[in-house]
């Protein structure tokens, strides 16, 4: 019998395939690391000309934006970005926190089944649609109903409009981040508190929120970084006036809007191009820092639990 037995060997073709596949995949994975570095380096190189001409402080804290005269103060744009983002988070935080608590601690299953698709839809709606909604609903509401109570006249294209639209945009992200954090807290924690006679809300307030505060902080940072980069929707409703916004009803000009509005056209002026690239660099740096920090916090939490 043993004469007819074949000695089986794994075919070299299969081994070669394995080798090629694993190397290719390693390269693909590494290129992600490379891409981040590449973008950073690209943006830095491109914004070198303006950094050589002006000091960093002048650029970031200068408030005069007259590109044709060679004055590049980014403060109005930075202030615009910060104010719009801040309004958005201030509006979205309580709503999303309350919704998330409701969904994880209080609600019945059918409520969850109804809410999650809505979150899906909100998350899926393109930003240009949010912008259109802002133009059609929020802006007129501000200029006709809200603004007359405080100031004589406002077009409605304002920090507030940008903040509201942006706030609604980050809602689904925040709710789903919070839900994830809340539902990963151990049930024993709740039971322990409730068995001491605390009501659900007391438990939530004193135990849950305390237990999850790092996670909430990280989620908020993540949402801020998302909100800061949002372009089209904000661009459509916030007025795009290069000035320091003094009230919520003033127009603003966030960094992404600056980029989107001027990019293609001003490329012929090298220093202007460099200024815009510097704007992109600011955005990139802030977003990357926020992202990395919040991811590290979230990762730590996950590891501990």
């Amino acid at each position: 019998m043993s004469q007819q037995q074949l000695q089986y060997k794994t075919s070299p073709y299969r081994l070669l395939k394995e080798k090629v596949a694993s190397t290719t995949m390693l390269i693909l994975t590494l290129s992600a690391l490379l891409l981040v570095v590449l973008i950073a380096v690209g943006l830095v190189i491109k914004s070198m000309p303006i950094l050589e001409e002006k000091s960093l402080v002048d650029l970031v804290f200068g408030s005069s934006w007259k590109p044709m005269k060679g004055e590049f103060g980014f403060l109005p744009f930075i202030a615009g970005t910060i104010s719009v983002t801040l309004v958005a988070i201030v509006l979205a935080l309580p709503i999303s926190l309350l919704t998330a608590i409701f969904l994880t601690e209080y609600s019945k299953d059918w409520v969850k089944k109804a809410v999650f698709p809505v979150l899906d839809i909100l998350a899926g709606i393109p930003s240009v649609i949010y912008g259109l909604w802002g133009v059609l609903i929020i802006v007129p509401w501000i200029s006709e109903k809200l603004a007359p109570k405080f100031v004589e006249f406002s077009t409605g294209y304002s920090v507030l409009a940008g903040g509201v639209v942006l706030g609604v945009m980050v809602l689904p992200l925040m709710v789903s981040l919070f839900v994830e954090i809340f539902s990963s807290t151990p049930a024993e924690l709740r039971q322990a508190s409730q068995s001491l006679g605390a009501t659900k809300w007391q438990t939530t307030k004193k135990v849950m929120l305390k237990h999850t505060r790092a996670g909430i902080f990280a989620s908020v940072m993540l949402s801020i970084s998302r909100a800061m980069g949002e372009t089209i929707a904000v661009l459509m409703v916030c007025g795009n006036i290069a000035q320091m916004p003094e009230s919520l009803l003033d127009g603003a000009y966030p960094l992404p809007a600056l980029l989107a509005n001027n990019f293609g056209e001003m490329m012929s002026v090298p220093i202007y191009e460099s200024a815009l690239m510097f704007a992109a660099l600011i955005l990139f740096v802030v977003v990357v820092i926020f992202n990395i920090l919040s991811r590290i916090i979230l990762h730590r939490l996950q590891k501990n639990s």
């Binding site: 992600a32 690391l33 372009t231 980029l259 990395i292």
Partner: peptide, 28 residues
């Protein structure tokens, strides 16, 4: 460690605003 670094990178890439991607690609 590579896995951790790569995941972090994808998270960062995920967070980069599309306008920055656009600006980067445009200059390229």
């Amino acid at each position: 460690k590579l896995g951790y670094a790569a995941r972090l990178c994808f998270d960062v890439l995920f967070g980069i605003p599309s306008i920055v991607y656009g600006a980067f690609a445009f200059t390229i």
